[in-house]
Design a binder for these strands. Sequence first.
DNA 1: TCCGTAGTTGACCGATCGGTCAAGAGGCCC
DNA 2: GGGCCTCTTGACCGATCGGTCAACTACGGA
Lengths: 182, 182
Amino acid sequence: MAFAAQRFADNGYHPTSVAEIVEGLGVGKGVFYWYFDSKEELLRAILADGQLDLRRRQRAAITGATTPLERIERGIRASIEWSLEHPVFFRLFQFAATDDRFTENLRKGEQVAVRDAARHLADAMDAGEIPEADPKLQAHAMLGVSSHLVHLVHRGLLDADEAVVDTAVSFCLHGLQGPRPA
Amino acid sequence: MAFAAQRFADNGYHPTSVAEIVEGLGVGKGVFYWYFDSKEELLRAILADGQLDLRRRQRAAITGATTPLERIERGIRASIEWSLEHPVFFRLFQFAATDDRFTENLRKGEQVAVRDAARHLADAMDAGEIPEADPKLQAHAMLGVSSHLVHLVHRGLLDADEAVVDTAVSFCLHGLQGPRPA
DNA sequence: TCCGTAGTTGACCGATCGGTCAAGAGGCCC
DNA sequence: GGGCCTCTTGACCGATCGGTCAACTACGGA
């Protein structure tokens, strides 16, 4: 799966053939179809693996935080860092988001994460830490900032500086904050 | 090109064959290869068309604005509205961003837009409208928010409400604003 | 020792791919 | 009318695709 993921990320899902994968692994084609029903199922399994790992990282990052806003910040940081460390998974997520065969697989995991973030946002609103707004929309906005910036780093258009992470976090946090009461 | 763009957006670039396109158009295959060198070149032409149109819209939206920040806001609004009105182009942009064969084509257009936005951000900083920060990073952050939200609308997970646009704009503007001096 | 099963092989399948090209249609100028 | 050029056709090409399957190997238990 790791090898296949690498090839999918490098050459694209469609242009990468099953023959290419098994050849690179030095095994027969039968092995592939013994473990997976199809090439499509392979990618689904890879995506599920990645989502699980990201989710674990997010949960771990959040524990220990005391305020809702701190949970949000840690969640963003963890997501960005994970995405920077796992360019292969990240690229596959991006691809899967553009292909109707796979969007459904992403949706579930993404919605869990967004719902989670939205809950913390709602908590922060209740606590008066940030003004009232649609928490889900804001969670998605933060996701947009993070993933786009990560995308740029992976494309080599941005240095994998910690300044990127800080800028993303700061942008998101202040975006949430809205106009401060004087 | 419009027909091909539609099919590429609906079924994906790779799964859509040239045969499918010419058949849908009711013409012979030779016609296709008379006007385009390859399937790849066709998509490139479509992408260029879309980028040109978006760029025009952005420029038109900005003219007449008096302050840098107003230019930024109008630019965001125009980009989001255009993307909502052109789901086919938007999807193709998203796909192209995930495929190395086409990223280079997007980069140029994207960089022009980002450089433009960054210039207005720098102007706003000089005018003291927003605090100092890396304008390019911020421009990309705004692009991330916009495109992710548009993506959700196209996937049907969000209503094409004007609230979406307003939230995006507000999130971006306050994200730029940073911590207000008390 | 021998059988059963899990795991593996790679030749093979029909379908389809992007792309080619010889043939010809239609119109324009001389 | 006849040569010419633009445009169109669709049969055809070799390559390759995802997927199948009969044959085979390795090995643990009886």
